[in-house]
Nucleic acid binder design. Sequence first.
DNA 1: ACATATAATGTGCACGTACACATTGATATA
DNA 2: TATATCAATGTGTACGTGCACATTATATGT
Lengths: 345, 345
Amino acid sequence: MNTTIKEIARKANVSLGTVDRVIHDRGKVAKKTKDKILKILEETGYKPNIYARGLVLNKSYTIAALIPDYNKGDYWELPSLGLNSAAQHLSQYNIKLEYFHFDQNNPDCFKEKSHVLLRSNPDGVIIAPVVNFEASYLCKKLNHLKIPFSFIDSKMEETEYMSFIGQDSFQSGKLAAKLINSLVYEKGKILIISIRNNSEFNKTLQKRIEGFNYFFEELDSAQKLEIEEFSIDQNISNWDKELKEILKSRNASGVYVPSSTVYHVARIIEDSQLKIKLVGNDLIKKNIQYIASGIIDYVIGQRPEQQGYLAFDNFYKYLITGQKVTRDNYLPLDIVTKENLYYYK
Amino acid sequence: MNTTIKEIARKANVSLGTVDRVIHDRGKVAKKTKDKILKILEETGYKPNIYARGLVLNKSYTIAALIPDYNKGDYWELPSLGLNSAAQHLSQYNIKLEYFHFDQNNPDCFKEKSHVLLRSNPDGVIIAPVVNFEASYLCKKLNHLKIPFSFIDSKMEETEYMSFIGQDSFQSGKLAAKLINSLVYEKGKILIISIRNNSEFNKTLQKRIEGFNYFFEELDSAQKLEIEEFSIDQNISNWDKELKEILKSRNASGVYVPSSTVYHVARIIEDSQLKIKLVGNDLIKKNIQYIASGIIDYVIGQRPEQQGYLAFDNFYKYLITGQKVTRDNYLPLDIVTKENLYYYK
DNA sequence: ACATATAATGTGCACGTACACATTGATATA
DNA sequence: TATATCAATGTGTACGTGCACATTATATGT
């Protein structure tokens, strides 16, 4: 049983109200009395009862999530699942989640949604900063309004974010390289194929490729494999044919796709019965079937659901329980393959 | 703002007490009234206010953990870390953790500690059932006393446990086989070396080995590798020499140690500068250095800290928030290697 | 019809906190 | 001396729930 305000008051020979004023530093207490009460608080290690506190405050918090729009089976569905799950678990604490979806290909859309978001006056904001410049503006605004915000997936160093939840892209690429290397085993050529669905410069992709190349640069030159890099834009017609052409003509032993769109390559490998080892990212539905059948050899997961869950949970911790929040949260790089696929789903 | 019992009562034209009886299924309510109230509860999606609930109950719960004794750096330190972390996070909810450590090699010790545990009259029990027969007796007792209990690490199917948190040992072995297979790549011999620190039959070890063998049985006979099995008892003097002898004489390309004691093999490989690929289990401190240096190629992790955290958290959920608890919780089989080691630590 | 048992329903209190409001005591001013 | 001022302290209420206890309605037996 913890000490209560009542006990403190009895020990100090004052009323509940006086203790209350000291605890909340509301003033109107004689210095002598205040010191006496503070001392007793210290000695007894008083901690407010969170139930009574929660009951009497009974505030309703709203967390806004500024996340890319998605179709079923896309990557961004997964962080949303985690966000939803956390929101549901914590709904009894009167903390709610509100989405503001934007089109990844349209920076204006991000800007517009930012404004709508700000007008809703949330108690916290979760941002997926895929559109850098506009996000920077939003962060400044939030900072000014003293609304705490978190990044998910990737972060913007120069802002005063409360927390970041994501992965280390460079290391992800390095790990992919190691896996490919163990698969093709000293013979053959390797392709890096980026399949982008927007024309923008993408930090995450870039860093993964850097990490991938770094791994091979560090190897003995004897073990080095030939690497070729390709970039395909899904907005261009016939991108599918082009991809097929590359896969068939280059006589590659292994392919690395540094994004969740690796299933496109898997489909072609399956259809054309090519003998190519394949490594990609993310455990999305469209990839799962190819992992199960062994066409995708390895996928590197980044626990997107957990990312979503943590992002929301951090606001609960911060706003409701008043706990400190870890600022940078790097989640493990999960290696997923046929044999351990089941327990990651 | 969520609906309250008061509102439900007003809508149903009854008193608070009647609604309360329906919610807690305490009987003494006319069927007609009960149905009416149930319908309203359903419609409004009533959820009890956790603060008010906690305030009025304000019980102090004690969870007992019956876990093997350990030295620093041993496997069982890790679930304890998770348990402690959960206990600390949830301390404000008046739920405490009390350990009862036993000696793995001494079934009598388990029995004795079981009795001490029962006398402490806990509100929930977490059991690591490494001593099967004695655990069975304890479970029956707990069942009779209506004290809920959970298993961690491995489970006993025939008991009425509240939840289990652990891994799929068979699949763990299968995954290890796949990794070894990709490492030695169609040439050479593979050894399975069990290093036991107690003389007892160990279910987990057995199942991992079964899974390991199963993987190779399923391969085309052309790709099959020669496999030899060894078992070493650490209680026998000179076990270290024997191990060294095996590693040096058998001309193996790969070794699988189906437990956390893989670091013993790693040490010998390092000292004797052998060229043997090595796969084992668990991310304990003694293994980490060998993963970092690449002597252990892969380790399969089972998130022991998370196991501990979940085990405790499940009791919080069950006893305090009244939520339903998932009965079987299989954690992912993490593949840990030099390149992704950092983010698993 | 009446007493009595029992089923059904209602009432009141406690939990610990936050905050609005009320009261007390001391000092200064007319 | 009476009164206004203001600092210091005290009191009361609400939050929503769980449970003990009180009350009312209905059925049963004589």
